[in-house]
Design a protein around this nucleic acid. Structure first.
Length: 637
RNA sequence: GGGCACGUGGUGUAACUUGGAUAGCACGGCAGCUUGCGGAGCUGUUGGUUGCGGGUUCAAAUCCCGCCGUGCCCGCCA
């Protein structure tokens, strides 16, 4: 617990708390202990939409007026008169029933700017996670084709949610589930063994084309039978077919890693489905859940092991009225369904059963940390046994995720159900049609909707613009700058949209470098850096002085925005909604742009020093929050 | 048959979990702003019965009920 002291309070939360305390004592003094609910005051406080109204506002008078059956206007007046100023709040006003507070801009600026100068990289981070261990599963791409623009949404979301959790002091394990026993792998493997061709491009791309072709050939019954025979052989994990499948899948995953690295996405551990089967995790999972499982001897589920839905529905009412009355966990042929394997996997994640997995290093990653993989031969390592699990899986799998989750409650582990989060995101479609890896509508005819192609296009586009830039002094940097801009455009475009919404992918949106975009935020940063450089600071930090020259204009507005970084990070983390943070960044950037236009810094006369420290603080906050989104900053663009 | 998600100016979206002052931002359209710290920007303007109907409330994009539309799901596929 001691180490959590490194996390200071967010300045915006601190001043809000001052207001709430002041309200609390004023109300007590006026009306005694009237029936107020816990947290009501805190929730009543918001930021007024008109700056002249104040810096903070409470609507508490409306609630009190209801109880007292009088007018909120009168109550607000009374409260405003009784309120006592505090360290950062100087005065109060009432308006139309609201109670508004005004912050002392000098004292607050001092608090905020000193906090940022002092904590630097640590500013914006939070202690709310208390070092609890959480596992994030993403993107679990099929090892039969390249990442497409849909896989990318998963990978980016998973990465950012992990970053947010870490920023909130959770201990995060980034896990990737590789299904190397599925029909996709069987299909790809059939194509792989039947083609005479050799890989002539990035392996996943090449395999994807083989896979698409094999899917077409499966329209012939004899091919279909061969593929399904192959599928059965894959389940026998020690067969030579299984070995060939794993081998092919590993080559594909190796290629996926190249894509991941290009996007700055790193994981800690891969869990392979074949290793789950090999480790007999399933039978251990069946042991601990035998009380809720049934093995009907007749009827449509004869010979299979199932969980009856009428056990589940009391905990998940939305499943009532389903067409089926049971969910198969183990097929009558003895093979586990996805459902069964997923349940077993999660029993392992939460430390309910010991998989006895062994691990080996899969490869080194550019971030300096190796990624490990479950492996038939390797060593024991400590993965899993977490308190919380987040599964980044698209929304269409909500049904299975729901059943799987409730199963833990049924076997007496309600806490797992409540700590198992399905981060269900909307799918990514392409104009007018479903994106389908199988049909191959992501390739050919110049319509390459792969993550690699997207990055290539965006980089090309960024390069065209960067080449025209007179601001880039060292042309050697053109390529890395273009790459950074391209990544910011792509990531920001995915992240600014709430996870549950579907996305219609369009090149025009994905390559947008203006307006509500990543490059806009990066541009803001570059302009700020240029001011610091011209003022002779560079990486050094200006001192916070002449604080008295701050006004109530955009300089103070900017200070208030800077103060809200930690709150934005915490909210984005809590709700697993990165768009909370993109919103914050856009507001911060646009406030800076207005400040930039209207308040000269270097020629700011007596206000130069305080404005410089605001600009410096802005660069720190932008770096910190952008890095959580996986976006890097450049000083010139 | 049942369930889940979504529906906000021409377009893409934010705010909905926790009801609060004039529904925020961007793109597009129109009109401006660089011998100023960077025009990937800024300013002004145009455009909204928040899908429809009811209800609760001093107050509804937000909560409740009923519709409509779109997508997804209810498989011994994964």
């Amino acid at each position: 617990m001691q180490e959590l002291k490194e996390f200071a309070d967010s300045p915006s939360a601190l001043v809000k708390d001052e207001f709430v305390q002041a309200l609390d004592s004023a109300i007590k003094e006026l009306y005694g202990e009237v029936g107020r609910e816990e947290g009501q005051l805190w929730q009543s406080v918001s930021v007024p939409n008109e700056i002249t109204l104040g810096d903070l506002s409470s609507s508490v008078a409306f609630k009190l007026a209801k109880a007292a059956k009088t007018s909120p206007v009168g109550i607000a007046k009374e409260i405003a008169k009784k309120l006592k100023p505090s360290e950062h709040i100087v005065r109060f006003e009432d308006a139309n029933g609201y109670v508004n507070a005004f912050i002392d801009e000098k004292k607050y600026a001092e608090l905020v700017l000193h906090g940022i100068m002092k904590r630097k990289k640590g500013y914006g981070r939070s202690g709310i996670g208390k070092r609890r261990k959480v596992i994030v599963e993403s993107p679990s791409a099929n090892p039969a084709h390249p990442w497409h623009v849909g896989t990318l949404r998963n990978a980016i979301l998973g990465n950012v949610v992990s970053n947010l959790l870490e920023a909130c002091s959770y201990e995060v394990e980034r896990e990737d589930y590789i299904d190397d026993l599925g029909l996709q792998v069987a299909t790809a493997l059939w194509g792989f063994t039947h083609t005479g061709a050799k890989p002539d491009k990035k392996f996943d791309q090449w395999l994807g084309e083989i896979y698409v072709d094999a899917n077409k050939q499966m329209e012939r019954p004899e091919v279909k039978k061969e593929v399904y025979d192959l599928l059965k052989k894959l389940e026998e994990v020690n067969s030579k077919e299984a070995e060939a499948g794993r081998d092919m899948a590993e080559r594909c995953v190796m290629a996926h890693q190249e894509t991941a690295f290009n996007y700055g996405i790193y994981r800690d551990v891969m869990v392979w489905e074949s290793d789950i089967v090999r480790s007999h995790l399933l039978s251990k999972a069946l042991d601990i859940s035998s009380e809720i499982l049934e093995k009907p001897s007749e009827g449509k589920y004869a010979g299979a092991i199932v969980v009856k839905l009428d056990k589940i529905t009391p905990y998940a009412k939305q499943l009532e009225g389903s067409r089926e009355d049971a969910k198969v966990v183990v097929r009558s042929n003895g093979a586990a369904t996805y459902m069964g394997k997923d349940f077993a996997l999660h029993a392992w994640k939460f430390g309910l059963i010991d998989a006895g997995f062994t691990y080996s290093k899969f490869m080194d990653q550019p971030n300096g940390k190796p990624i490990y993989t479950t492996s038939p031969k390797g060593m024991a390592m400590k993965f899993g046994s977490v308190k919380r699990a987040i599964n980044v899986i698209d929304a269409s799998q909500a049904y299975e995720q729901q059943i799987m989750s409730v199963m833990f409650t049924l076997i007496g582990h309600k806490e797992i159900t409540s700590n198992l989060v399905h981060l269900a995101y909307g799918r990514v479609n392409i104009e007018g049609e479903k994106l389908s890896a199988r049909s191959g509508n992501w390739l050919g005819d110049g319509r390459n909707y792969t993550a690699d192609d997207l990055l290539g296009e965006a980089t090309k586009r960024a390069m065209e613009i960067a080449q025209k830039s007179e601001k880039i002094t060292n042309k050697q940097n053109l390529e890395s700058i273009s790459r950074a801009i391209a990544l910011s455009a792509i990531k920001f475009e995915y992240l600014r949209i709430a996870p549950e919404k579907e996305i219609i992918f369009s090149w025009q949106n994905a390559l947008n470098f203006e307006g509500n975009s990543g490059p806009y935020v990066m541009y803001t940063y570059a302009r700020a850096r240029k001011i610091l450089a011209k003022a002779g600071f560079g990486d050094a930090l200006p001192s916070v002085s002449d604080i008295g020259r701050i006004s109530r204009g955009y300089d103070f507005e900017l200070v208030k925005r800077l103060a809200g970084a930690q709150e934005a990070v915490e909210k984005a983390c809590d709700e697993a909604r990165p768009n909370v943070l993109t919103d914050y960044l856009l507001e911060l950037s646009s406030t800076f742009s207005k400040f930039y236009e209207s308040m000269p810094v270097i020629k700011g006369e007596g206000a130069k020093n305080v404005r410089l420290s605001i600009v410096y603080a802005l660069t720190v906050v932008l770096e910190n929050t952008l890095s959580l989104l996986g976006i890097s900053t450049v000083s010139e663009m």
